[in-house]
Design a protein around this nucleic acid. Sequence first.
RNA 1: GCGGCUCUGGUGAAGUGGUUAACACGUCGGAUUGUGGCUCCGAUAUGCGUGGGUUCGAUUCCCACGAGUCGCCCCA
Length: 417
Amino acid sequence: MLTNAPRGTKDILPSQASNWQWLENKIRKLCRLYGYEEIRTPTFEHTELFQRGIGEGTDVVDKEMYTFTDRGDRSITLRPENTASVVRAYLQNKLYANTGLVKLFYIGSMFRYDRPQAGRLREFHQFGVEALGEKNPAVDAEIILLAWDFLKGLGLDDLKLKINTVGCPACRPIFRRKLTEYFTEEADELCGDCRRRLEKNPLRILDCKIDGLKDFMDDAPKIETCLCDECREHFNDVKKFLTAAGVDFVIDNRLVRGLDYYTKTAFEIQYAPLGAQSAVAGGGRYDGLIREIGGTDTPAVGFAAGLERILLALELQGLLPAQDKKITAFMVASGSEAETYAFNLLTDLRRKNISATMDFGKKSMKAQMKSAAKSGAKFALIIGDDEVATSTVTIKNLETAAQEKVPVAEVPDKVRD
RNA sequence: GCGGCUCUGGUGAAGUGGUUAACACGUCGGAUUGUGGCUCCGAUAUGCGUGGGUUCGAUUCCCACGAGUCGCCCCA
């Protein structure tokens, strides 16, 4: 028990960490390319922020949050997603003050009490971007493009981009009412979950995996027939921009987002080989959220992507980079005088910015040579009584097996790439 | 939260109601005493996810729990 990480959490070990750094660097470069700046918000927030922001009645809020009372009697929640926090920070710090459009991105851990499986952890990592303060559909397109080009750019095949519109407060209620009417007539045919959804959230029936396949689904009301002019035009413009950018997308009018704050554009990028957890990125427009949290009416768009899932996909396709090369110099010292001598040289090399290490186990020279070879070091710096006596070092190139004895002062230059 | 499957050393695994719990890789040590990657030799699970039960006896049978995995659900 003591030696087990909590369920649904994972150590990122040295062999994995380089992949994470590599991915994170790509993300930072990408976001800079698109003009987004990094923001880091607290890992936990007041519970109410998520209740209001994500919406009560959603699964995330109702049954997946890590909520606790702190010593000051405040209800605190580990963030299950980062959009609400970003919006909170935007309002609290008045980021809207200097410019109309604020473009932010984040990378960090999120927490959701789900049943773990491949691609679904209780502590997981997302990167996401948020563009706050602009209603222009071009921004929707920019966000989708950022996500799409990023994943494509990593080399992933078989990606599928689905887009849809979920309307706005003016037209969604009409659609919702039509759905309720339609599905009420089909109630006998619906699965248990969907019968419950009928009242709470009929939109969700559309993406039910069970009922989605049934015949009556084909004749279900379509959102297009309900859209107000503004939403219709907005959606058309998004499609226009994406088409112009040469993006291959599919309109899926059964795509709905799980969080309450979405309006108009909704999208999702799937990588099917991942199985049940195939959604690699998802997002959309959330024009109502900022007001909901206490700001003035401010339009916004964003998305989040799951880093574990991306890494899984990259691994599946063999797209992860080779491990970066190891250190330059490995000290091999025999005898206690040699150890001191070697240690001093080790320090000197490091201070000259040359990576170096040594085997501290006081082993035989042969064993030390083995360690040196295994470490992947480029050079073994061999120091024995002879070298100590003559202030020299034997440098052995472990790749070519060539070796020479040089004065200790020359070692840094000999070993530098 | 629900259902299926799985659980043997650092790793991949074989195996049985009573065995010294195979084999391979890895790791460590050695092959005449200052040198690696090849080869050879040796060492390396009083232990078979955890806790109960059945039994003369359980790693092998049963139950519970835990973890992993796949699907549902949810979502990134």
